[in-house]
Design a protein around this nucleic acid. Structure first.
Lengths: 205, 205, 205, 205
DNA sequence: GATGAATGAGCGTTCATTCAT
DNA sequence: CATGAATGAACGCTCATTCAT
């Protein structure tokens, strides 16, 4: 005999009836359409239909279209961060760190084609006078700035640099090389090798 | 040999020779609004009013809003290319070339704030299923690829690199460092110095 | 002869004998919201939530929103009629009758602020092409007509009047003076005194 | 030969092209539908179609539906005030003043059936958190209060009354007797005679 | 060439109602 | 009896574009 408490904890297929199921469908559909068509060409109605649900269901999960897009961006960020963290352990040389990070990013891009581009491209465009979440580009630039600062402290990166500026430069190089590289059909292998070398040489003391 | 002035008067390849004054007003107004509000938040009507003209006049000069935006992008490209060409002569070292190019870009950014960002950001977003002009990012990436290839031929750049990939990386680094740098109020001086060093080190053999 | 208590338990003409507790909650919530927000700004969903019940429960008690509003109106009518009847006995002079009625109405308004206004205002507006219940204004106008007719029979009211017209006039005077009087913060005392005098003088032979 | 200036002043069929013409059509259509269906059941689209115009044209003239309704109310008020003023000169006895005013109101009601009711009924209902124009009922109640005050000063009305309260009462009596009277098919003659007598007796010292 | 009133497809969003659980 | 996720017709409104003047 199972206790009700355990039931609640273990048998989580039914709570809130099927709300979470439809949220997952909406999210999947929204991602697909934001990637394929971009923010402006994607209507909440399209998302709902793609998810096999009624129009109104969209608004059960998001107050408006913008919130849905922001959630999509945030999900992408979380996923990618997870991939990167899983691949990049501690105690690596800078070169390993860069190479592994790039591999993680490009693996993610490969298995989620277009997602990063969609999440980064449109962000500036949705605003509508609300509080803009910090854009992905800015966040990831800061992350690279932190890496640069830390590596500089360990003597792995030249101390001549302003970490913030260089951080953004690194991110820009990765982003642009990746989106154009994939667009024009380059092999991941080549992109990562060239970029790693480029960045390592750029940074070394 | 024809003088530039006469060229301007006789050359009828320009947009249909309609009262050029009103086209200039439209262009100026369109640039202002595309920069301030972005593509989607700018209505042809707004452009015309900002130009002090009737709504219909917009369509005397452009078949649709998209064409107006594309013309704005093309103008920005031409202007910037002019600035860069004016500053970057032949026979320079790679470092000089990079530094001068960066200075040209950042000077242009300073005197035309927001223009490059507007011209680059929105491009993917306007599509409307027509033939997309080649995006600025792609074009400028190719330009850098050509520079890299040429410099590699002269022994100024490591030959290990794939010029296309690295060209895009360079462009990405410049673009991102610039737009974030300006956004967060960094001094042009610092941005250029850091970025030049970064790129020179990355590329040298 | 059946006791009233047993009557209540056996009499199955009341709304389908569903758990009466939740109907009471719905009624209370509906009244609150109809008064505060009006008919159109009140959603069945809001009523249910205000009642602390699930949305669907609303439709266990009323076939639709309109029926709920009509029930609210009917309840208000019944309550007010009860108040008036409790206060106005037989064998009164016309002046007493008017003054007592007014006091009853204004007491009710005071203890149920906004209810009469909500019940009277919106009625024309909910229609939805169905059979409209006879509006409160019409009913109460007829009641006054009956009073006038009866008083005329007893020589207390001039016989020059058409009772129907004058009945409606009386009701209109009371309603308008009350709703504006309360809105602008007049004392009940003053409103009743002025209105009583006004009506008594108007009617007397 | 006509001077351009005179042309402009005399030949006003063409200024602003046909905007005023379409505004008139919209106003007429809006009045018709607000009267027939009420505020909530009238869609801007319906108004435009009724006017024989496209949906968008509605929004050339009014920023939103609410503004259109408010304009309708204001027009009704102006029209009625004109009718009343035309009929009610100075130097009248109170009885004449009341009788003439009532005749003016009922004439207007007859030639514009339903307009006053529509303009008065719905007003409370459209709000939507905006600045509510002062409702017709309130305004006209104040007008009657002023009349009462003035007549009391000339000894034509008992000084026992609070003019504000009595003003609202008069308005309410007129409004309710009129709308119910017409609804139930009473003759204007009878309504006016009864109401005049009712009010004159009520007020006189 | 220049105008701006007119257009209507299409947008993002709401909400009264249903029904599987 | 109670629930609340799901629904989709319908809303108020926008805006790129046309065309009579």
């Amino acid at each position: 005999m199972r206790s009700p408490v355990l039931d609640k904890a273990f048998d989580d297929t039914r709570p809130a009836r099927r709300k979470p199921e439809s949220l997952a469908k909406i999210k999947k559909a929204a991602r697909k359409l934001f990637v394929e068509r971009g923010y402006h060409a994607t209507r909440p109605q399209d998302v709902a239909r793609e998810a096999g649900l009624g129009h109104g269901t969209f608004y059960l999960h998001y107050p408006d279209k913008r919130a849905c897009f922001l959630a999509f961006v945030e999900d992408a960020r979380t996923e990618l961060d997870g991939c990167v963290r899983a691949r990049v352990g501690a105690q690596q040389t800078l070169e390993e760190l860069i190479a592994n990070t790039l591999h993680a990013i490009y693996d993610y891009s490969q298995s989620h084609p277009g997602v990063l581009n969609a999440a980064m491209t449109d962000e500036a465009v949705i605003d509508a006078e609300g509080v803009q979440a910090i854009p992905l580009l800015q966040r990831w630039g800061s992350d690279w700035a932190a890496i640069v600062r830390s590596a500089a402290g360990h003597g792995q990166v030249s101390e001549d640099f302003d970490a913030d500026i260089v951080g953004q430069a690194i991110l820009g190089a990765i982003h642009q090389a990746a989106s154009e590289g994939f667009r024009s059909g380059r092999r991941q292998e080549d992109i990562v090798r060239n970029l790693t070398q480029f960045l390592v040489r750029a940074l070394r003391p």
